[in-house]
Design a protein around this nucleic acid. Sequence first.
DNA 1: CCTACCGATCGGTAGG
DNA 2: CCTACCGATCGGTAGG
Lengths: 209, 209
Amino acid sequence: MTTTEPAEPTPRRGRGRPGYDQAAILRTAVELFNRKGYDATSMGDLAKELGLTKPAIYHHVTSKEQLLSQALDDALDELTAVVTAASGDRAGATAYERLREVLRRSVEVLVAHQPSVTLLLRVRGNSGIELAALERRRWLDDRLAALVADAVAEGSLRDDVPPTLVSRLLFGMVNSLVEWYRPDGVYDAAAVADAITVIAFDGLARHHA
Amino acid sequence: MTTTEPAEPTPRRGRGRPGYDQAAILRTAVELFNRKGYDATSMGDLAKELGLTKPAIYHHVTSKEQLLSQALDDALDELTAVVTAASGDRAGATAYERLREVLRRSVEVLVAHQPSVTLLLRVRGNSGIELAALERRRWLDDRLAALVADAVAEGSLRDDVPPTLVSRLLFGMVNSLVEWYRPDGVYDAAAVADAITVIAFDGLARHHA
DNA sequence: CCTACCGATCGGTAGG
DNA sequence: CCTACCGATCGGTAGG
């Protein structure tokens, strides 16, 4: 199990206790949620990780679910921005170009917001908050499927594979990022986006009919 | 939330109670684990789903973790068989052919054993059983990465994308199956395997340099 | 009266 | 298989 240092306390404003703010607690909470799972993470675990007592956390945060909700909103807001920017035909951009763009920007979001997106992709719908997040996710998936269908319709993508299947697999590949990508590793977001684009559009095979 | 009927009780052996056996309880348990998450599923939930009391379950099963362990073993045994069959060069088969084969057979396993594989792919390492499963998974991933590297080395796959990245993305795409594939849907295992193979090796783009 | 907490414990529920 | 429970721990809150 990886040892993780809690998010840095905000720079001390003079004398007194370290003083976490809401954002720092959220970062540590999301990291724990992803490492152990949301349900398996107790507020006591979070307190220990932060070097606080459990009641002290409630000085900054109203509930465990609020932490989940904020992380899910962060991920969903970012992904929604990407999909919205790529949906609807912008001046002169083909569906194919917009699909490439949404793939590239999705990878950037997954890399820049990996903790919250990871949490989002693991939501099961166990509460109202989770169900609402799943509904927003479905909206995103529908937009992406429509974009793929548009690219097939305009003739830039092959039409011998069902567009819905292509959409699932394409973004399944992108989403798998959260399971293995490490920001301190050898690949940056651009390298991953390039690899995905090459695989998806040009294929890996060197010689084929 | 989807309503799910519990696994059918084994055919009654005459008079008396329905009489679940271990396998039927395991099926229902795994289905619940996947729907709500392992930690969020209580043995009471499982009892209600089966129409039994909580203690009655322990007549058939020794612990909640045992149910998890059996499901993980099922998934890992199946995937290991696929990878073992494809690893090491069999008579006359190129790495490229073996890679295509392992992709196709992986899809078949994911479809035929979706519940247990889904559970496997969500394991976080929260217990000894989970850590052992993660170790077996890592072994599989290493074998798959080696197979991709072999295919690049023999010249059948393009070498301008890092093989480790290709391996991650390829099996990320395959593994995403567990998140959306429905056995009662329009696509069978062969259709999905074909789509993955086409995307991965030939690419989606219709015209490219 | 503020902030940033603490020690102790609440009502419920977990797996067994 | 059920009724009746256990040791422990859950998320959250009391007064100070």
